[in-house]
Amino acid sequence: MSTNTVAGRDAGLSLQQQRQRAAFWFLAPMLLALFCVAAWPLLRTIWFSFTDTSLNNLYGGKWIGFDNYLRIRTLESGRVIYKGTLVDPAWWNAVWNTVRFSVISVLCETVIGLVIALVLNAEFKGRGLVRAAILIPWAIPTIVSAKMWAWMLNDQFGIINDIFLRLGLISQKIAWTASTDTAMYAVLMVDIWKTAPFMALLCLAGLQMVPRDIYEAAKIDGIHPVKVFFKITLPLIRPALMVAVIFRMLDALRVFDLIYVLTPNSSATKTMSVISRENLIDFDNFAYGSAQSTLLFAILAIFVSLYIWIGKVDLSGESSK
């Protein structure tokens, strides 16, 4: 055997072993970095959520168990008092806001994104120009888009009110971001504007992998384009669409910056991320905020697992190889 191996290869290690050893050293720095910025802070956040740590005294917290989540106390009079995040109406309001925001925005973005992608998949003059144009909302920083739209949605001088008044869609000027009835619409409008193009690009990538001859065959058979879309195109791009939707959904569920800047302190739009940060930093309820961010993490983790399991989504792209 030993006469067959190439002489002098690192003291008898096979090529494969040698490569695996190198791979370990190549991966180690990256894994160490990820451990420091992701795993460790996450574990610390979870730990903090079981203590009464405060912002100014990070090391002075005592273990208090699940009290930040739910604390049941029976008073001497026999009355039972529930405290903690799980019975905090502000928290459940934030959960509801987040879910509503995520579902509506991702749904609208997927539909609009698909429409844009179908348009871009057709051949016409100036297609390159349109594709360049839809990249612009994606390239604009979220804070900048929030400010731009805050100005356009301004109640007195905003152009949106002007356009809607001229078109007769509204009868008087609306304070989009300030009024609790419309704040969520304002946030949704901006989010859809900003991310629908991104969805369109992902959908387009899926569409371009559908072989053209399928469409030609359908055309020869005289099948209606709408039927072609639902029976052929949609099933074929479903895997790409499922992946795009989960990525967008995760982004939407953790939304912070847009809402923080566009509708500050509005209880109609406050999401889980916003309320967690508020407690962590602004209100000096460090441990309480940690409990809320831990809950957010748990909700996201459960959601992703269910989605991948039920939708049989292949995220790694390994099995298709």
Partner: peptide
């Protein structure tokens, strides 16, 4: 999975670090 982390979930731990 790390790239999908909600950033708020590591905020407290990162703050301490």
């Amino acid at each position: 999975a790390v790239s999908m982390f909600p950033q708020i979930a590591v905020l407290a731990g990162l703050f301490e670090l």
